[in-house]
């Protein structure tokens, strides 16, 4: 798959619009889903998706092939989303984690809750942006922690820590919703 993407990028670098269209069709949906998960605004996400692929068109010649094409494009989308959040004044750059009491959530309750899309959507929305981004890339896009680190421009250890805290907060939120009888 990545070899196909790299072939398309090479063609795009030569000005091939058909290759750009093919790459857009291959990656538009996951990239859009990633952006919208960060911004929660479909209109703004569409504009950023557009800007991402314009950047791909303009800078395909500078792609060195050291990473996957998908990782490179998600990195562009990540940075553009940050710019958008910065403009809104909504960016939280600290890596602090909320205090958590040490009792683990009931996993049976949690298992029931996490099969309900509404619960999962709500609880993802309660996470800080860096936690939500890490979980989204891991579970929507099935990325390795190395790839997530590359997209977000942080060390691998930071990604593991973010995922660890995001997982705990997510499970706590999910079991809490069931225990409070929310549907």
């Amino acid at each position: 798959m990545d070899a196909d993407h790299k072939f398309l990028i090479a063609k795009i670098a030569q000005g091939d619009k058909h290759a750009l269209a093919a790459l857009y069709r291959a990656l538009e949906r996951p990239v859009y889903r990633f952006i919208v998960s960060r911004l929660n605004d479909p209109v703004e996400a569409s504009d950023i998706l557009h800007d991402v692929f314009m950047d791909v068109w303009r800078s395909a010649g500078r792609f060195e092939g050291r990473s996957k094409v998908q990782t490179w494009i998600f990195g562009i989308a990540y940075r553009k989303s940050i710019d958008a959040m910065r403009k809104r004044g909504r960016l939280d750059l600290t890596d602090e984690t909320p205090d958590m009491v040490d009792d683990g959530p009931d996993q049976e309750t949690c298992l029931a809750a996490c099969q309900e899309a509404e619960h999962v959507r709500h609880c993802l929305g309660t996470l800080k942006d860096d936690h939500r981004t890490a979980i989204t890339l891991a579970f929507y896009q099935d990325m390795t922690y190395c790839e997530i680190a590359e997209v977000a421009g942080v060390p691998e250890g930071t990604v593991k820590t973010r995922i660890f805290h995001a997982k705990k907060l997510l499970m706590r939120c999910l079991s809490g919703r069931v225990e409070r009888g929310l549907t």
Partner: peptide, 25 residues
Amino acid sequence: VLIAIRDTMQAEEAQSPGDFGLARL
């Protein structure tokens, strides 16, 4: 639990710009 969360997230559909977005691009 983690596998169930992942499955639920992957089952979510997002209405992307699709062909309209491609035409604009």
